[in-house]
Design a binder for these strands. Structure first.
Lengths: 186, 186, 186, 186
DNA sequence: CATGAATGAGGCTTCATTCAT
DNA sequence: CATGAATGAAGCCTCATTCAT
């Protein structure tokens, strides 16, 4: 059994803190303290706090999309997979006590300079968008030209459900979004 | 000609700064400097930075709802007023360069402690929710029991459109949300 | 008897440290520790470390020129006052163990950005230059057009004597410079 | 074609950086990065940063004295060679944009501990002093007992011209020093 | 009711050096 | 002989808040 590497420990600790207490609210001192790492060791692996955030978001993207895929894989049709997104949201957000979306949270109250972080958020949302479009494209029910529109509308419902459930600390926005999604995809 | 009161000046300055450069990114020193107020004078009127934020949100609520009302007042039917919300979003968010929603922005990257701020966000979104419900209730087209559902779905589209247009720095999410809204309200 | 002000204490402490152990070698932490002041208190009075250095140099300029004037005031003629500069150098540099010139020392190994500090060094040397020129102008022995030249040559001897005695930690360069000065002014 | 040795590369890189951006302003990380050397490899060759500085000064001494000799070799008499020093100063300092003397720069803002560096500065200045004395000894014009005095005075003019031109970022101090030198050597 | 001075805690980042491989 | 990871100490600066006047 080998001890986990420093870099790994930093990302894990930072991920936990960034997501759960916020990026601005998390200082490097806390990160290195909880990761059990010297400050300069941390800066050997990451040029800046922003760079840690980028790796946090990259790792989170893989994990999040993976879980989403797992969750909807049980569904029969592509259309049901898309609708199943909202089941995933319920599952996930309930578990994290409606802490919201890591990407939304980190960009909303961020100084202008952090371009790399903002780019990650855009990347993540674009990937999710493509993922939805691809699923809908497989449905013979929809004409190709309307798939883009439909997908975007679903994406907006997802985003709205996440942020509203975070504000309300309740799950009804996700249920509502699911209903709207079903209506839209009919 | 009377000089504006200290409290008033602080709220105005802080509102501008909190919204445009972020709550975490705005320090008390900048607020008092730009407001032309002594530090202890400020603490005479506000117990803490959070308290300033609360009053900022209260003031913003009045202004925001007012502008929303103004914008949709031109529309003929209640249904069209609801759909007109998205015209307001376009107008507003384009003007502020897709800076997003003041309430969303301030709560997403905030630690759990700031109860007063979070309460304001809940309050604002509930008022908006009620506003939408009231409009839909006036439409004979909808049964009373479905109005709640419809309203919530519209609210989610609004929230999603705001946050997604903020991430993308583009207006298409608002256009998409409007289309979805029209479909849902049919 | 009143306690000395914070700003005063900072300048005094910093002056001592900047001169005796070097600007780059002196950290803010040492300054505030020895001055017995909180870090933020220091930054209330000085925007940056460079600003402290500027005030140190300003204060030093007054003190240094004052002592120079005192020292040469005993001399009879203007010419002898100029030559007397080197007696001042001996007196002063012996006392400070040949620590050299505060202005020379601070600019030689300085990052490019510190414009305000560099400006102070230029200012000080220009004032000294004017001071020498004025003395020489009072001597009927010299034609007006040669005074500038003579003065500059004396200034160079002063600068050379200071830096060389600092390197050698000995006083002979000052004695040599004095001899050269006498020769030049003949 | 053989790759340059590690030690050689470090000295060359460090020399460039130490002289052009300052000793305190140059970190080991920058040195090894620009030299393309691993950190521990560097510490295999040099016990400390100070040791690198020493070898930088040693190398610089050879180069500097060489160029000085080259420059004055064109002059006819020994006396003219000495005066020619100031032509060298002009040539050199203009080229380096009045960056001053490597030895002066490194010792002025240095704490008392760095004995090895200070010793190198003393060594360099003594060698230059001897070099001047030797030249003057070859001139029959001067009595042996006055050569020491004359040489020291020239040395002081050189030092003063260098530091003053560095402060002023102008060449007139060197011109003035040359005039003084000519007068002194008459 | 208003003020500027003072503060402890913490912000992010870099330093020169050593260690295990 | 070479390497990258790891470190403790220190770098300069800003935070929200309180206190004495």
């Amino acid at each position: 059994m080998k001890k986990k590497g420093v870099k790994e420990r930093i990302i894990e600790t930072a991920s936990d803190l960034f997501y759960n207490q916020g990026y601005s609210q998390t200082g490097i001192n806390q990160i290195i303290a909880e990761a059990g790492v010297a400050k300069a060791s941390m800066y050997q692996h990451f040029r800046s706090k922003e760079d840690i955030a980028v790796e946090y978001l990259v790792a989170r993207h893989g994990m999040w999309m993976g879980k989403l895929n797992d969750c909807v894989s049980r569904k029969s049709t592509s259309k049901n997979k898309v609708i199943g997104c909202f089941d995933y949201l319920i599952e996930w957000l309930t578990e994290v006590n409606f802490r919201g979306c890591g990407w939304q949270n980190i960009i909303t109250d961020l100084p202008e300079e952090n371009h790399k972080i903002k780019a990650q958020a855009v990347y993540h949302k674009n990937e999710l968008r493509k993922w939805i479009h691809n699923l809908l494209l497989q449905e013979e029910q929809y004409k190709e030209e309307e798939v883009l529109d439909l997908g975007d509308q679903v994406l907006i419902l997802i985003e709205g459900a996440i942020i509203l459930s975070q504000i309300q600390k309740e799950s009804w926005p996700i249920e509502s979004a699911k209903k709207a999604c079903i209506k839209i995809l009919t």
